[in-house]
């Protein structure tokens, strides 16, 4: 080992090239996606108000700003998802490379199941989103898709029990992802602070549970025959 002279050059890399820069991208896009999921969930509650309600809601969405609004929303969502996955993937690969040889024995302490499953959980979510779009937006993965009749589409889809099971699994993955994700977001954006650290943790868990429970209620309600 020779001298550490390293007359260190200032690297001045572009912001997003830094790990923290990409973490921030992940957090912000994560926040957008999270916001969508929340809103989407609230919108889907109209399912319980019967066919007219949800169909009107859908029509409203589609007609919003003569259809433009939806496209804007879609654009934002799509870019967020892409950036989110990009930052997640690139950072994940680097982190894997940072420990070429692992431990023979390892005992976790403060990390959680949620924190350790962010990555694969994310992949499940990706898969879910793709299927979900084919299932309820494009209809090409649907027993009998009727454009415009959202109510029928949802009910028909969930009556196929494997579909419902997959939804439930995906929602659990989403719940875990959010439980850690929202807290992680606070850290990444530098929001967490001694005073409300516990609060942030709690909020994350609360949101996660709400989304999981709420979203799972739909397929369950359909299978149970409460919604038909």
């Amino acid at each position: 080992m020779t001298a550490i002279t390293a007359s260190l050059p200032r690297l001045r890399l572009p912001y997003v090239a830094s790990t923290i820069g990409r973490k921030v991208v992940m957090a912000v896009t994560g926040l957008v996606l999270f916001g969508f999921v929340l809103g989407h969930f609230v919108g889907n509650l109209t399912l319980y108000l019967g066919p007219e309600a949800i169909n009107h809601y859908s029509e409203f969405l589609h007609g919003f700003l003569h259809g433009g609004g939806l496209w804007v929303a879609r654009a934002v969502l799509l870019t967020s998802a892409v950036l989110h996955v990009w930052s997640a993937t690139s950072l994940t690969l680097e982190s894997w490379a940072a420990r070429p040889k692992g431990y023979r024995r390892w005992t976790a302490k403060d990390s959680t199941y949620a924190s350790r499953t962010m990555r694969w959980g994310g992949v499940i979510l990706a898969a879910f989103i793709v299927f979900h779009l084919m299932n309820l937006t494009f209809g090409n993965a649907h027993p009998d898709y009727v454009r415009g009749d959202v109510y029928h589409n949802v009910v028909a889809a969930f009556q196929v029990w494997p579909v419902s099971v997959f939804y439930v699994v995906a929602m659990v993955a989403l719940g875990l992802h959010l439980d850690h994700g929202v807290w992680s977001m606070c850290q990444t954006l530098g929001l967490s602070h001694p005073r409300y650290k516990r609060w942030a943790r709690g909020a994350a868990l609360g949101f996660a549970l709400l989304i999981v429970a709420g979203n799972c209620s739909f397929p369950i309600a359909v299978l149970a025959g409460w919604v038909r």
């Binding site: 001045r12 790990t19 940072a98 302490k109 403060d110 350790r116 850690h180």
Partner: peptide, 23 residues
């Protein structure tokens, strides 16, 4: 400067596991 150097040294990035504090 410190974060850029940290990245350049080949450490991984933080996903807020909290294992560091525990250790």
């Amino acid at each position: 400067g410190m974060v850029e150097r940290m990245d350049a040294e080949g450490f991984g990035s933080c996903t807020n596991h909290g294992e560091c504090e525990a250790a």
